[in-house]
Amino acid sequence: MKELRKLATPYKWFMILLVAIPVLIMTVLSFSKTSGVDFTNIRFTLENFSKLGQSVYLEAIVNSLTLAGVATLICLVIGYPIAYIIANLQTDKKWLILVLLISPMWSNMLLRIIAWEQLFKPNSILNSLGISLDLIGTRLAVVIGMVSIYLPFMIFPIYTVLDKMDKSLLEASRDLGANKLQVFTKVVFPLSLSGIISGIIMTLLPSATAFALPLRLGGGKILLIGNVIENMFKKVYNYNLGSLLSIMVIVLIFASMGIVNRDKGSLI
């Protein structure tokens, strides 16, 4: 074990330098008033918190959570059956299907977002099919973008759990009198909850904090928390409020993970 622990050393320093220290700096910035990251005239204050109540920030947070929530729900509804079908395929070519599923992730995410943006404009390649969409700036466009980009993150954890599931458990439930639907509702689904939860976390969090996606597909009309934070750092230069909002998002994420994990405990 000690030998293995040494191997983690670079990772440990990587995490300290690129995660722990920045988060620490952001925490300090949240509780103070500075000009940029210049700490010479630092003044500790809680005035950043008083700005949180402003409607623009609240709206961004509500937007983020509702749009990401809807996208995650759709991902689950589409992703679970796909994962289930692949896991139950009687073939040794499963890897090929899985590779096809992740292959879009090999192209740049920004590129895929721009591709959707082009399709959602009234004048697009779809015109040749007699279709003209005008979706830029709608919530629908943002949700479609989120689903298309984060769907694999929902499928994979669920697939992994279903594929590893001990088949004798399914036989045991048949043996005890369960019909096919009952095998699913009483054994397969409850045992795949851990995969569902991982999938939800892995889709909900990146969608809720996305900023390029709402920027392009939302046409600047739909503001998510990621966009507000980006503006704070790049346009308004209010690093203090930007840091505070970022920290709030982190806290929100950990809180939701905590709730989900607690519920998982009672469900299983």
Partner: peptide, 11 residues
Amino acid sequence: TVFQNYALFPH
């Protein structure tokens, strides 16, 4: 059936 690996439901 009593299964070789018992196949008890872990949940």
